[in-house]
Design a protein around this nucleic acid. Structure first.
Length: 420
DNA sequence: TCTGGGGTCCTAGGACCC
DNA sequence: TCTGGGGTCCTAGGACCC
């Protein structure tokens, strides 16, 4: 069996360039929510040493000096392009697992010794480039982990090997692993890397040679599996049907810091309403609710608090959820505190209508019709066409900033590009 | 002055049960 | 003086990913 993974090169930047040719060949950075950090960089921007996650205010001079182009994140566009390139992958494989916004695993057709996989992968790259316009790299291997490492190697060797690396060959693995730092391996973060260093494990080859039992001892079962997968033994398979969502979160930095209870209450209500909307769209209800608010961790003594509660019966009704979140906000708020972020998490999600009823709860029989009407209006006329009053009206200073956002080129009729 | 957001999985430890 | 053993469930927190 061959595991493959496709990733889009500098996805957000590549997506922006698709509809804006002026961005091609020049340094481009796509910013995080609130236009705070660089989350995607073109090759030209990487060459100017703009790091992943680097705060924009720290590189203002470089941006000016080199004319680096900035864009806010445009998730509508990226989500639509994700749908499109996955459709192309699906033409090549009956098993596709969408792993993230810019990566998908797929199962390559079984051929003896993985023969022909590499050619097929090159064809897939060409098809995605021609049909969607996005540049990709592909990693292949006998396990998921090996395909993921192969994908990372394909990025590093793109100019020589053309963007496809296959790690079926054990001899090739041995050679490449000796020069590939262990911290670059999928699943090895800085903490585990630091624990491996004193044991003399610095390269992927060192890690692959580790006895699995030792790996479990040093780390957890996760590290043991990782070591086995590096050796070619499958411990993880495809998930074609995505698992049901277990938790969802809506957390945002404020555009401008929040200092009053009224503002915090509104900001919290907006996030809570969005979280409830998200789980309704999936037909889920939540049993657990968490709300938090805090100040900047870069300032001394920032305010910080969170509250959690059980929802019985489980709910996705904004009237229920916003009332509790409002009480939590009042309990958390510290006068004089400067808040920079707040959020709402809904957990223990289960399909609606399957759970145990609550003997003592009063159930509103009209709720389903009301919520369906709200969701219908917001879906047809745009988000927040109808809201609860506690969410406040209009745009507020605490709303997320996205000052450099490109149009929703492919998903809104009013923003479709016009050819001249 | 200005520093992202949204997920999953695993483990340790406490509460509780028989 | 000496005070069992073996489970499950839940939660908080850590680690990792993109």
């Amino acid at each position: 069996m061959t595991h493959g993974i496709v990733d889009v090169a500098n996805f957000y930047v590549s997506a922006e360039r698709l509809f804006d040719p002026s961005l091609r060949g020049v340094p481009v950075i796509v910013l995080s929510n609130n236009d705070g950090c660089a989350v995607a960089r073109s090759e030209e921007a990487k060459a100017l040493h703009v790091r992943m996650g680097e705060p924009v205010f720290k590189i203002r001079d470089r941006i000016k000096r080199h004319g680096i182009q900035l864009r806010s994140s445009n998730y509508e566009l990226y989500a639509d392009l994700n749908r499109r390139f996955n459709a192309v992958i699906a033409e090549h494989s009956d098993t596709v697992e969408i792993y993230s916004i810019d990566e998908s695993f797929y199962r390559a057709p079984t051929l003896p010794n993985g023969l022909g996989d590499v050619d097929a992968a090159h064809t897939l790259r060409e098809d995605i480039l021609r049909q969607v316009g996005l540049p990709t790299r592909i990693g292949l291997g006998p396990t998921r982990t090996l395909s993921k490492v192969a994908n990372a190697l394909a990025k590093a060797t793109e100019k020589v090997w053309g963007g496809v690396v296959d790690l079926h060959d054990t001899e090739l693995r041995r050679r490449l692993f000796e020069r590939w730092p262990v911290g670059e391996v999928w699943g090895i973060g800085s903490t585990v890397e630091a624990r491996l260093r004193p044991l003399g494990i610095r390269t992927t080859a060192d890690l692959a040679a580790m006895p699995p039992a030792v790996a479990r001892d040093v780390g957890t079962v996760v590290l043991e599996r990782l070591v086995r997968e590096l050796g070619g033994i499958e411990c993880a398979d495809f998930k074609v049907e995505p698992d049901a969502l277990k938790a969802t979160a809506v957390t945002r930095q404020f555009g401008e810091p929040v200092k009053t209870l009224d503002e915090l209450r509104e900001a919290m209500a907006r996030r809570a309403a969005r979280a409830a909307e998200k789980i309704r769209a999936q037909g889920l209800v939540a049993s657990r609710l968490i709300a938090f608010a805090h100040g900047s961790r870069y300032r001394p003594n920032p305010p910080s608090a969170s509250r959690s509660a059980r929802l019985s019966p489980p709910s996705n009704d904004p009237r229920v959820i916003l009332r509790i979140v409002g009480q939590m906000t009042e309990a958390m708020f510290q006068p004089g505190g400067v808040y920079t972020k707040c959020g709402v998490l809904l957990e223990d999600l289960t399909p609606q209508g399957r759970g145990q009823a609550d003997l003592f709860a009063t159930v509103d029989p009209r709720a389903p019709a009301l919520l369906a009407a709200m969701d219908g209006l917001n879906s047809r006329f745009g988000r927040n066409t109808i809201t609860l009053a506690v969410q406040g009206y209009g745009t507020k200073s605490f709303d997320t900033k996205r000052s450099q956002k490109s149009p929703a080129w492919t998903t809104r009729i009013s923003e479709i590009p016009i050819a001249r």
